[in-house]
Nucleic acid binder design. Structure first.
Length: 666
RNA sequence: GGCUACGUAGCUCAGCUGGUUAGAGCAUAGCAUUCAUAAUGCUAGGGUCGUUGGUUCAAGUCCAACCGUAGCUACCA
């Protein structure tokens, strides 16, 4: 028997469970249920990720303490996951004694071994609220495209990433005051010291190949120290032997896996160290989304290894969920809460649909509304449940619900049973799409069999009644095998089927033993068909702004802009007075531009199309009010306009004769 | 630009370490059937496997370049 510990990433405690969370927890739960069905010990723990500025601010906004807030959401999360049959053994919280204990322990170990250093960091500070501002809590104009009201890490409008200090006219989202720059000492994990360790670690098979490639890219690019401290006020654990320093939420979040498990161990009398000591022969599996692989595949194993814990055996990374091709995000209002979903559909539909699409790789999964309806109706109702429904009627009417004493088609039965091991292998590697595909092929075989035998014809002939019993018993037995194969994916339907089959819970072992001379329970409708209208109603219901964290984001902009928007761009005629190759750069030219009242320097990536000499003296158009951009080779004070696909096909714009430097383009 | 993926029927995708006429589901058309939740079965149309080269007796499957898409990233201003 294998001993396996499994986790899903910790949902953050400032919002409700939504379809994105469910993708991950369903994927994990399918794997967990499969392992248990195979007879292994499989402990599945999770927790709420409670710390950080976001929780603190939300609590304040709602006028409650952080503890009250996270307690409420904790209860809500547990209820939601339960409804979807997510079988956590423990759903705990990072705001717990155990977590504080392990956070301190790990930190101290790292500190004692010289893996922690401090450095001064300059950050925006809200003078009114007397606190440093996280990137998300600063808003201002994008330094690149000038879009107003953008957060401090990247621009929603042009996608640029930048430092919060680069924002133009920054404003604190908390107090609307103007932030000032201030220094603070921060604690860093010396990640570069773990480079050699990580190089080996990522090739030990603990991640999917494409993830290992990605990690390798990051490692080769050079690791940087990881800032694990935040200044007070901060909702989190104080860092030992410091004043007003707290662990950054991402430091203690993964430690929450240990804490939740420890909490479970205490209650269930299991030795924590069996699973977490260096040479443990137990298994540890993490299921995460691809957005957090750096935390789980670089930081987390490094931190564990260098504080004497074992590293995870495997990190299973899944892609992101999109809805009808559009990224799910709060700001766009395209996401569906677990609770909203439950108002309209059975949780098994979602489990089945996602199961039918999940593979062992990390590609994104699109939730297609039509696809969803088609698969549920076609596969589950039309094919699978149909087998039971069409077989059961004859048995109930004519044979008192009793199955025949032997199999009518042993060969066909064997064909189904023989699939068990390959299906198990696909579950093991997380390729549930393949499981579902194969099971549906088998369901087709079964429907073909029933169509060929046509028991509704035979039943008219009194001499052939026994044949009918045999055929329908085959139908029921095959149905039982199929539902057994899908049990980890659709536990609700399985449970109702088990009740009808009246032979106890299905296990991987007993599903290959046919039921003979067995009396069935009463058959009720197992599953209902769904329609697209209901789906659309769900989307409408979900479109109402859910009660969550982030400040309301601006509506997504239409393609058309107003004249005012255009006028914000100060386009000027400029004459190139000087042009030089930039040493060390492949694509840049340094241009000195006469813009009428003064000259300025612009770095432009047009070297592949123009020689410096042929540019001097030419007139062109420049964006004059662009925020100066610090680049590797100097500061660029504007942008010259050019068109073309790139390479040698770049064409500089030029005004007609008569235009003088400094003239505004309107 | 770099990196990592991906590009197979209208749509969603299978095609494992290269090997007979490239498969499935949905959709479309026709037929059969009525036991079953307008469920099921059979049949048909539809693909120059992104493009161009190359390796090989043999390539959707390997290699290269290019085109396109996505994510990350940069000397993209």
């Amino acid at each position: 028997m294998r001993r396996i510990l499994v986790t899903s990433a910790l949902p953050y405690a400032n919002g409700s469970v939504h379809l994105g969370h469910l993708l991950e927890h369903i994927q994990t739960d399918i794997w967990v249920r499969f392992q248990r069905m195979r007879g292994h010990q499989c402990i599945y723990v999770c927790a709420d990720d409670t710390h950080g500025t976001a929780t603190m601010l939300l609590a304040e906004q709602e006028g409650v303490s952080e503890e009250e807030l996270i307690k409420r959401l904790h209860a809500e999360h547990i209820a939601d996951f339960n409804q979807f049959h997510i079988s956590h053994d423990n759903y705990y919280s990072t705001h717990s004694e155990e977590n504080q204990y392990y956070s301190n322990l790990i930190y101290t170990q790292l500190m004692d071994r010289g893996y922690i250093y401090t450095e001064n960091v300059e950050q925006l500070f809200d003078p009114e609220r007397k606190m440093f501002l996280a990137d998300r809590n600063v808003r201002g104009e994008c330094p690149r495209c000038g879009a107003p009201d953008q957060p401090g890490d990247n621009c929603d409008s042009c996608g640029a990433t930048y430092d919060a200090r680069e924002l133009k006219n920054p404003v604190s989202a908390l107090s609307n005051s103007t932030p000032i720059l201030r220094n603070s000492e921060h604690y860093f994990v010396d990640l570069p010291k773990f480079t050699e360790f990580l190089k080996e670690y990522i090739h030990n098979g603990s991640q999917q190949p494409e993830i290992a490639n990605k990690l390798n890219e990051w490692i080769e690019g050079g690791l940087r120290g990881w800032d694990i401290s935040r200044d007070a006020p901060y909702f989190g654990f104080p860092i030992p032997d410091t004043v007003d320093k707290f662990f950054y939420v991402w430091m203690d979040a993964p430690i929450g896996y240990l804490a939740s498990f420890k909490n479970w161990c205490t209650k269930n009398n299991v030795d924590f160290d069996d699973f977490w000591r260096r040479d443990s022969d137990c298994e540890v599996h993490h299921f995460i989304g691809k957005d957090i692989i750096n935390f789980h595949c670089l930081f987390w194993p490094s931190v564990l290894h260098h504080s004497d814990f074992r590293t995870p055996l495997k990190v299973h990374v899944h892609g992101m969920l999109t809805m009808d091709g559009v990224a799910m995000s709060k700001s766009r209002g395209t996401f569906v809460l677990a609770r909203t979903y439950l108002d309209f559909f059975d949780p098994d539909y979602l489990r089945y649909y996602l199961g039918a699409r999940l593979t062992s790789n990390s590609s994104d999964i699109d939730f297609g509304s039509e696809d969803f309806v088609t698969r549920v109706n076609g596969d589950l109702v039309g094919k699978l449940v149909n087998i039971a429904a069409r077989s059961e009627g004859f048995l109930a009417k004519n044979f008192d619900n009793k199955l025949s004493s032997e199999l009518a088609e042993p060969a066909l039965w064997q064909e189904f049973v023989d699939e068990a091991e390959s299906i198990a292998a696909w579950y093991e590697e997380g390729d549930t799409r393949r499981v579902v595909r194969r099971v549906m092929e088998l369901a087709d075989r079964c429907n073909q069999y029933l169509a060929n035998k046509a028991p509704w014809q035979l039943i008219k002939d009194a001499d052939r009644r026994d044949e009918v019993q045999g055929i329908c018993s085959m139908g029921i037995n095959l149905y039982r095998t199929l539902i057994g194969f899908l049990k980890p994916i659709i536990p609700g339907l399985t449970e109702r089927s088990e009740e009808f089959l009246n032979a106890g819970p299905l296990t991987w072992e007993n599903l290959t033993q046919p039921l003979l001379s067995h009396r069935l329970g009463t058959f009720g409708r197992l599953l209902n068909r769904i329609d697209l209208k209901t789906f659309n109603k769900m989307i409408e219901a979900g479109a109402e702004k859910p009660l969550t964290d982030d400040a309301a984001e601006p509506e997504s902009k239409s393609e058309d802009i107003q004249i005012d928007d255009f006028l914000k761009v100060d386009l000027r005629v400029a004459r190139i007075v000087q042009a030089d190759v930039v040493d060390g750069a492949d694509k840049l030219l340094r241009l000195r531009l006469d813009v009428g009242d003064h000259e300025r320097t612009v770095l432009s990536g047009i070297r592949s199309a123009y020689k410096p000499d042929e540019l001097i003296g030419r007139s062109t158009v420049v964006v004059a009010n662009l925020q100066p951009r610090k680049m590797k080779f100097g500061v660029s004070e504007g942008m010259v306009l050019a068109a073309g696909p790139g390479g040698s096909d770049i064409f500089l714009l030029a005004p007609d004769e008569g235009a003088e430097p400094g003239m505004r383009v309107t």
